[in-house]
Design a protein around this nucleic acid. Sequence first.
DNA 1: TTATAAGTTTACGTTTACGTAAAGGTAATT
DNA 2: AATTACCTTTACGTAAACGTAAACTTATAA
Lengths: 130, 130
Amino acid sequence: MSEVYTISQLTEAFDVTPRTLRFYEDSGLLNPRREGTRRLYSPRDRTRIKLILRGKRLGFSLNEIREILNLYDEQGQGETRQLEVLLGRIGEKQQQLFEKKRDLEAALDDLSSLRSGCEERLLQLRGKQE
Amino acid sequence: MSEVYTISQLTEAFDVTPRTLRFYEDSGLLNPRREGTRRLYSPRDRTRIKLILRGKRLGFSLNEIREILNLYDEQGQGETRQLEVLLGRIGEKQQQLFEKKRDLEAALDDLSSLRSGCEERLLQLRGKQE
DNA sequence: TTATAAGTTTACGTTTACGTAAAGGTAATT
DNA sequence: AATTACCTTTACGTAAACGTAAACTTATAA
């Protein structure tokens, strides 16, 4: 359980280049501490990278991903009003994800139909052939 | 049931600019017929636009989307070998979508947990307050 | 002690997916 | 006849998300 990671450990783990992690840092998505000039990433940084990359795979921009990460950050400040606002923003993001889920399921349905059609056609062709 | 659409009809329907549709055409994703110089889009073009935009929302690049559209196109050429290859490619795309679905569900789970935590915290605060 | 490996900053380059004029054609109103 | 609406092509501009090269530092290995 090493508490910290070097940049190369994380680039290997997530299959990204150093440039990518530095770019995310420039964009304000990561904040590794420094040992001299070297970056040292914490487990927290690591999970943030995981969230960033997952967000990218789902088609979110880095700006949208920043909003999501902020949700996790602002959770600590336990002030009633803050929490209420936060809950609203969480709800919006959930809504966005639900919409994506609908899109995804529609796409899966389309591909299933296409597949069925092909399989059927293939059976017919093989029937004729024998 | 008008069989054809002008560019402005489709830009309104899908909330995109003319530039976007022309760009998709330049990219080889659409092929509207022409009446003189004007573009006339068929129902087929229309459904292709729908597929393109859905693909974009799911984080696919236009190149990846082209691959998907090609699956639909090549379906007609009923030659056994062709269909077998096609079925393989359909399977790959389905696989990609399943992976995205896993990502999506993980993201939804995370947000649900975050939400629960906030709601719990909020209840505690309101308990103290009264 | 001199490579070698791993890290750093700086800065220009590149791809994708369009945005945004500019300059013009055509068809229906006014 | 001239305005208006809608369309066209051409072409340069732009934001996002990095890639890539150059020039340099620091620590470990040979």
